[in-house]
């Protein structure tokens, strides 16, 4: 299956929260309003500039997700639909995913004695079955559009080109952190929307892999060097011991060293 995605057009959003309501329903979450993502809010609608502009927040479903690379037990998987899913049966609860996610999306069930990480699942089952996400289904204005990521990029480009001056000439999520499945179009600066603007264009997992990939080389080299040093220094100690004994046995030979040394 081609990687799917969501295109969120901030200029079309009217802040009706239909997406949040549909999301809660689709995921069996309590219907309560919130301005911040939480373990029971996979998506929220935030008002910006005195509610002149509205922006949805949800998991970005990165192309090369930081959480997938950060999780030591591999509890996160990038699925064939593009969704990034979490498996509570693997999770040990270290919360490195929460710390690592550049979009600060994964949320924790802090009140639970067996806490899970929670976040948007890009309606994996529905999409797998050929449908679209609940939020895109519910959106009355087309502010959230579902489709193949490739097609959404084309559509976004088209909207920017056909409406000069209406959009900032940038598709947020095209290259951010190596590209994401959820992308934004906006008429206000992306930083004002609360989206991080200081992200590298390279996939963030590369930052760790650059170091991690050196471990085998380091291990072998360090092992060999340490063994070598040990060999030399213990040989030296052995020689020193031998020479001290020699000196004790025959003090006159001490000055004219004959080069007779213990052999190994």
């Amino acid at each position: 299956m081609k990687h799917k995605g969501l295109l969120i057009d901030v200029t079309k959003c009217i802040g009706c929260r239909a997406c949040a309501v549909a999301c809660a329903e689709a995921n069996n979450l309590p219907q309560e309003e919130s301005l911040q993502l939480s373990a029971t809010h996979y998506t929220v609608v935030q008002g910006i500039n005195n509610d002149q502009t509205f922006v949805r927040r949800l998991c970005m479903h990165c192309n090369q997700p930081t959480c997938v690379s950060a999780c030591l037990v591999g509890a996160f998987t990038k699925m064939d639909t593009g969704a990034v899913l979490y498996d509570e049966n693997k999770c040990i609860g270290c919360r490195y995913c929460m710390q690592a996610c550049p979009f600060e999306v994964p949320r924790y069930e802090w009140g639970s004695l067996a806490p899970r990480v929670q976040k948007c699942r890009m309606c994996y089952e529905r999409v797998e079955a050929g449908g679209q996400t609940a939020c895109a289904d519910a959106c009355p204005t087309g502010a959230t559009a579902f489709g193949d990521r490739d097609e959404l990029i084309k559509e976004a480009r088209k909207r920017i080109d056909e409406n000069p001056g209406q959009y900032i000439d940038h598709i947020y999520g095209l290259t951010e952190a190596g590209g994401t499945s959820v992308m934004y179009l906006s008429n206000v600066p992306f930083g004002d929307l609360g989206l991080p603007t200081n992200l590298p264009a390279e996939p963030i997992p590369d930052l760790s892999w650059r170091v991690l990939s050196q471990i085998p080389k380091y291990t072998v080299t360090a092992g060999v060097v340490l063994f070598g040093i040990h060999w030399i220094t213990s040989r030296r100690a052995e020689v020193a011991r031998f020479e001290a004994e020699e000196r004790k046995r025959s003090p006159e030979r001490n000055t004219t060293h004959t080069g007779e040394r213990p052999r190994r």
Partner: peptide, 22 residues
């Protein structure tokens, strides 16, 4: 750890791309 009883998962569920794994 939120799920300390699962700490042994680190032994059998490997992700060499994770620094936490190291």
């Amino acid at each position: 750890l939120g799920r300390p009883w699962a700490i042994w998962h680190a032994m059998i569920m490997w992700n060499p791309h994770s620094v936490m794994f190291e």
